[in-house]
């Protein structure tokens, strides 16, 4: 290598390293995030048709959200409440009709909004506190196929919890106020509220 080229090579090497590091680290931080995840489901159920055009309320099918930690995916018998009486039959409808008649689960849905095992999210607490389903699940009534639109990271959950507790949400704000104010206690911000 010619001595004159050396500073350029160093700068180039540095630039490549910086780009690789930034990309690598950003990708690492996004590892496990599923924003934009919209997998194909075994039955092409359309929320746009049911929740949107037909205005079926979320809690009609996902009734678990009112009383349990899990909102739940409705069993075939819930679908049969209407589809047992309707005339229009499609291949998709035949599939879950068979399951309802046999009383045997015949297919498994792909979970879209998936939290890691070490997080205990409780739907009923949020539903009973009048948090709208749209806040976390997005505009489901206009989704043909369910897509996870929110990041569902802990930081994102905490931003709402902090707002609810009246605590500043931005890091800079929190740092700035740390030495002037005593932090307000809020049970929603306790680690053990979700990790236990």
């Amino acid at each position: 290598m010619r001595p004159a080229m050396r500073p350029t090579m160093i700068l180039l090497g540095l630039a490549i390293t910086v780009v690789a590091a930034v990309t690598g680290v950003t990708r690492l931080f996004r590892m496990g995030m599923q924003q934009g995840y919209a997998p194909a489901q075994p039955i092409a159920f359309s929320h746009k048709l049911h929740a949107g055009d037909n205005k079926v309320p979320c809690l009609y099918c996902h009734y678990g959200a009112r009383s349990s930690r899990h909102a739940g995916i409705p069993s075939s018998s819930v679908c049969m409440n209407c589809h047992g009486l309707l005339e229009k039959q499609t291949v998709e409808i035949e599939r879950f009709k068979e399951a309802a008649q046999l009383d045997r689960p015949l297919m498994s849905w792909v979970k879209v909004h998936n939290l890691p095992d070490f997080v205990y999210f409780n739907h009923s607490r949020h539903v009973l506190s009048d948090v709208d389903c749209k806040n976390c699940h997005g505009d489901v009534a206009n989704m043909q196929r369910i897509e996870q639109v929110m990041p569902l990271t802990m930081g994102w959950c905490l931003s709402c919890h902090r707002e609810h507790a009246g605590v500043p949400t931005s890091t800079l704000d929190r740092a700035a106020r740390r030495f002037s104010e005593t932090p307000k206690p809020a049970t929603g911000l306790d680690c053990a509220s979700c990790h236990y």
């Binding site: 680290v25 496990g32 995840y37 997998p39 309802a100 498994s108 849905w109 792909v110 979970k111």
Partner: peptide, 19 residues
């Protein structure tokens, strides 16, 4: 891991056939 487009593994849910 950083180089690959890493996603969390696919998880499935099986509801009861008749609630």
């Amino acid at each position: 891991a950083g180089l690959a487009a890493c996603r969390a593994p696919e998880q499935r849910a099986i509801p009861m056939a008749v609630a």
